[in-house]
Amino acid sequence: MDGQSFRDRIGQKRVNFNKKYDGLIRAISKVGASSQKGEFSSFGPIYETFMYAFIIGYKLGVSKPLESGERVGFNDFVDFKPTPIRDFVLMLLLNKSEEFGFKWIELENASEDTINTFVTELIRQMEGYANAGFEYLQNKWDNENMKFRNPFVFVNFIEELS
C-alpha cells in the first residue's frame, strides 16, 4: 500500500462525537436553525468544534474513547478543513501511535488487516481526545457559563492549557 492509499483509508473514516455533548456542540457551533447566537462566541461547522475539542483533550493528555451507543457520526475525516490543520491533527495522532500499539516501521510491513486496525484505532484515539475535550468544555459551560460571553473565550481556554 502506498502513502496516498494510506491517507485515503484514513480520510474515508467516519468521525463520531459523544451524543451526550450534542447540546453543547449545537450551542457553540453555527449549525442548522441555531446559527444565530449573538450573545455567545461560536465555531463554524461541527468539525471545527471537534478539532478544537480534540486539541483541548490532547493538551490535557487524556483520551476517552467512545463506548458503543455513545457515537454520533458527523463527517468523514477527509471533510475536515482547512487541510493543514487536519494534517496537524493527524501528525499529533501519529506522534502517539506507539502509545496505542503501533510503530511506524512495523506499519511498513503490516498486512491489510493490520493497517485497517491501525486506521480504526487512530480515529478512535482522535475521538477519545475530542471526547475528553468536550467533557472539559461541558464542565466550563455548566459552571462558568458567563465566560462564554467573552469573545476570546476559546482562545483563553487554549492559553490556559498552553
Binding site: S41, E48, I55, P84, I85, N95, P151, V155
Partner: peptide, 28 residues
C-alpha cells in the same frame, strides 16, 4: 473582529488553535 476570533483559531497561516504545539512538529 470579535466574530473573526474563532476564524483566527483555524487560520491557515497562523492558527491560534496550535498554540504551544511546536515541539510536536520536531518530534514528528
Amino acid at each position: 473582529n470579535e466574530r473573526n476570533i474563532t476564524t483566527m483559531l483555524f487560520s491557515e497561516n497562523s492558527p491560534w488553535l496550535l498554540m504551544g504545539l511546536e515541539k510536536q512538529i520536531t518530534y514528528f
